[in-house]
């Protein structure tokens, strides 16, 4: 019954996503939604390493920037076709993740987070200062739009929307396969306790590294999409405040759940849109909201719903059928 409900919910979300361009009033809404999807894809990665494996990586936006700049630099400065550059975005981020992971994952808990905070700063500063490679603060301008695949062209906002949506659906499906496999259970065992996981015969370093690389692969992929979608890159996208944004999406929706980043990543940007007048002061509202959420709703929308359903099922007059 529960399984069927979940499946039905996902299919409804899929249908909603497919018909959204026909419901949206204008191209601006499509752009907002596509950008939100790109960040949801990156947040899925952050959720894998933080929500499922328990390692809070504060350099996540830096890895997204690495994926984006891979596409930007290759297409603009080396005239590499978009799709070849795009295919490289995820692997480049994951390769960098391998080296950074080897060093950083030897540290535990807060130490890991603070170390990755520093890594994020290094990535940001390198992008900003290494002008011959990254164009520095000027940024990379004129990234080509995704080139046509056969009869499919990506020159309208609607086509780009479906492109981004396609990658989000694939990303979600792969993430679902990961977290419901033995590997996902392994990650959760590590989250629930390093020592216990190790005593069960789990190789901590190897699995943490795998989770980390998978997570930054998602970030790199999202970055590659971002480059092709926005077509302009500045060092700002590596800023730690983007990691903070993704943290908020993850927390609002429900940390350590598959649906959480999707719900959070879609609701928060739309709330921000309706609070346009706040602009740079939005954190006057969102800062306290983040604190209140952490204190009163630590498991987000999805986590609270699951807890509520569990409480309801535990009541004697609750549904008896399975």
């Amino acid at each position: 019954m529960m399984r069927l409900n979940a499946k039905l919910g996902w299919i409804m979300l899929l249908v909603l996503g497919l018909v959204f361009p026909f419901l949206a009033g204008n191209d601006y809404h499509l752009t907002v939604m596509s950008t939100a999807y790109i960040y949801v894809l990156a947040t899925l990665g952050l959720n894998l390493v933080t929500g499922y494996t328990g390692q809070y990586n504060l350099a996540h936006a830096g890895f997204m920037a690495v994926g984006a700049y891979t596409v930007g630099i290759l297409t603009v400065d080396y005239q590499v076709p978009f799709w070849i550059a795009f295919v490289l975005a995820g692997p480049v981020a994951a390769l960098l993740g391998f080296f950074i992971g080897i060093v950083s994952l030897r540290l535990k808990g807060h130490y890991f987070s603070i170390f990755t905070l520093c890594v994020g700063y290094i990535l940001f500063l390198v992008i900003e200062k290494w002008e011959s490679l990254t164009h520095g603060t000027v940024g990379i301008i004129g990234i080509p739009a995704p080139s046509p695949i056969g009869p499919l062209t990506f020159d309208s906002p609607r086509a780009l929307y479906y492109l981004v949506f396609f990658f989000l659906v694939v990303g979600l499906w792969v993430m679902h396969r990961i977290v419901s496999s033995l590997l996902g259970r392994t990650f959760m065992a590590i989250r629930n306790g390093d020592d216990l996981a190790e005593s069960l015969g789990i190789n901590l370093m190897r699995n943490k590294l795998l989770a980390f690389m998978l997570s930054v692969f998602y970030a790199g992929l999202a970055g590659g999409l971002y480059a092709g979608f926005v077509r302009f890159l500045g060092p700002g996208i590596a800023g730690v405040e983007h990691t903070f944004d993704m943290t908020m999406y993850m927390l609002v929706g429900g940390i350590g759940t598959l649906l959480g980043p999707v719900l959070g990543g879609l609701t928060v940007p739309w709330i921000t849109q309706t609070l346009q007048w706040l602009q740079e002061y939005r954190f006057l509202v969102f800062g306290p909201i983040l604190v209140l959420l952490v204190i009163f709703v630590p498991h987000g929308i999805v986590g609270s719903f699951i807890a509520w359903r569990a409480r309801k099922a535990a009541q004697p007059h609750g549904s008896g059928h399975a």
Partner: peptide
């Protein structure tokens, strides 16, 4: 994460 919330609030 709560500390980050405080940070964002104070800066804004």
């Amino acid at each position: 994460i709560a500390a980050i919330g405080v940070l964002l609030f104070l800066e804004a």
